[in-house]
């Protein structure tokens, strides 16, 4: 397991008048090398959960195990530096994690901090810029002179430059244009499938992740409401509504098609292309069946 949570609760401002429990008794397992989507209504605890994954927040109750590091509530926590290198976290607002005066320095900061040579750090910076589809000319630019979308990509690049085993992203596609969004999801899927990295994505756009995610985690009011595969989710989309979420269009269309055409046992097709292909094949099948049927019966109709 890459990440394992046992009975984890987290309370903000514990021991103060303003204490607020964001997570209650979460049990969660995320397998190494898997791609996991996390969804839930606003304020359900998604961002809090992510921050437990690299020790930015420590559990108020329970045990968080990430790779070979175990953090138990109430106990002295182990050295977190190795964990931080291996778990890269991309925040909701990228400008909150950029601080240098050029994009290149920002991208090199992480690797340099973890003991990589300057040359190697610069090479990694260029590679992760290219991976994110950013023009290398932007390396010289002040990060705060980038557009919102470019800054987000640069922030993701700065995390990839650290070569993390686990990449955790909080709504990484929020301000990206749809083409960049699809490219980012494709890149993350490659990092997962080809390089065996564990990818965890919080998203409000389940549609764009549904075709790729191995697993889904749904949160409701700080509690775990569902953990399972996309297929299991497709079989019972009502769980989404119970979590205060809308059932994504791709899932609604698949469900309607599956019910009418009797496809319920099949692996859900959650792209327009996939569903259209399957539907066209079904109609074609029916047509040939009808055509041969008509010939035999000898009473064709227009």
């Amino acid at each position: 397991m890459a990440i394992q949570l046992q009975q984890v609760s987290y309370t903000y401002a514990d021991r103060s008048m303003w204490k607020q429990t964001a997570l209650h008794g979460i049990n969660l397992e995320i397998a190494e090398g898997s791609l996991t989507g996390i969804a839930g209504a606003t304020g359900s605890g998604k961002s809090t959960l992510l921050q437990l994954f690299n020790g930015i927040l420590k559990p108020t109750e329970g045990t968080v195990q990430v790779l070979d590091v175990t953090i138990t509530a109430g106990e002295k926590s182990p050295r977190l530096l190795p964990l931080r290198r291996r778990v890269g976290l991309v925040f909701q607002f990228p400008e909150q994690q950029m601080f240098e005066d050029t994009v290149e320095k920002d991208l090199c900061f992480g690797p340099l901090n973890f003991g990589v040579s300057l040359e190697e750090a610069k090479a990694r910076a260029r590679k992760s810029m290219t991976d994110m589809g950013l023009d290398l000319a932007l390396l010289e630019r002040n990060p705060f002179r980038l557009s919102g979308g470019q800054m987000r990509k640069a922030a993701i690049a700065s995390v990839l430059a650290m070569d993390p085993d686990i990449v955790v992203l909080d709504e990484p596609t929020a301000t990206l244009d749809p083409v960049s969004r699809a490219e980012l999801i494709a890149l993350l899927e490659r990092l997962c499938r080809e390089q065996g990295r564990t990818i965890i994505i919080v998203t409000h756009r389940m549609d764009e992740l549904l075709p790729y995610a191995d697993n889904w985690v749904l949160l409701k009011d700080g509690e775990l409401a569902f953990q399972g595969s996309g297929g299991e989710l497709a079989a019972d989309p009502a769980i989404l509504e119970r979590c205060g979420l809308r059932v994504p269009q791709s899932l609604r269309y698949w469900q309607a098609a599956a019910e009418r055409f009797g496809l319920s046992g099949e692996k859900p097709l959650l792209t327009a292309e996939g569903l259209a292909g399957r539907l066209a094949a079904l109609l074609e099948e029916r047509r040939t069946l009808n055509a041969s049927g008509t010939e035999e019966m000898g009473n064709g109709h227009e």
Partner: peptide, 11 residues
């Protein structure tokens, strides 16, 4: 300016 980017579909 992309003020709804972090809202879920229902919102």
């Amino acid at each position: 300016d992309e003020a709804s980017s972090m809202l879920d579909e229902g919102s």
